[in-house]
Nucleic acid binder design. Structure first.
Lengths: 122, 122
DNA sequence: CGGGATCCATTTCGATACTG
DNA sequence: CAGTATCGAAATGGATCCCG
């Protein structure tokens, strides 16, 4: 459905648009990986860890299109490309960090509930 | 890959775990839909808008398992089931709201960059 | 009304191979 | 090194039918 309308009951659309753009794993992980300054493609791949180059390229392109990331190509013999968060991109880090902190603090509780649910099947 | 390891370069795992659980569209939308108190299944479906009952059920079950949502069944003639955020669930609303605000404030800028990228193909 | 089960279309994504 | 292109496996998700 992609996103369709925004809900009969006046649902907040910006949330949907946000999720449509940066709502996937890799986008979030990449933005956070770019936290510590400009990164090369391969460095990024390592930092994110477990991402295929396809997804990395694809996600970076999307981030670039959205103006969250800049792509700088250095015309040197071994190709060198660096990705860096734009101002807009960095502005996203705050909210993202908030979520991250929530994760750090509450994810254990979530796991606990999870296990409890498992042990009490019926 | 689900999540695999957490990256050779000491990537923050909680983020991955978070994304694994509440990293999809519907989860976020549902949590926000539950903002205004307990909701019935069908009411929830309307508020979220565009979600199939399959995804709604599925996502609600997951949220329940994670201890973010409670499911209350009232044994009445026309079945009545209400979903409500737990304390844990409500604690997630803050961070989520932060993201929402970012979306409201910056999503236009993102769209602008998007269009610019379209108009300057090469 | 709420939701389980099934079927099927679409999308996503990883693996692989090839290029400048 | 930093991609692009292609292929196939797998997950996602909607539609439909049925049940308590």
């Amino acid at each position: 459905m992609t996103v369709g309308r925004c809900g009969p009951d006046q649902l907040d659309c910006p949330t949907r648009r946000l999720l449509d753009r940066i709502g996937d794993r890799w986008t979030v992980l990449i933005v956070e990986a770019l936290d510590s300054g400009p990164q090369r493609f391969s460095a990024l791949a390592m930092r994110v860890g477990g991402i295929s180059q396809k997804m990395l390229t694809q996600t970076l392109r999307a981030l670039e299109q959205d103006g969250l990331v800049t792509r700088t190509v250095y015309p040197v013999v071994p190709p060198r490309v660096e990705y860096e968060l734009t101002l807009l991109g960095r502005s996203l880090q705050g909210p993202l960090r908030a979520l991250e902190e929530w994760a750090v603090e509450n994810l254990d509780a979530v796991s606990a509930h999870q296990s409890a649910a498992d042990n009490a099947p019926a």
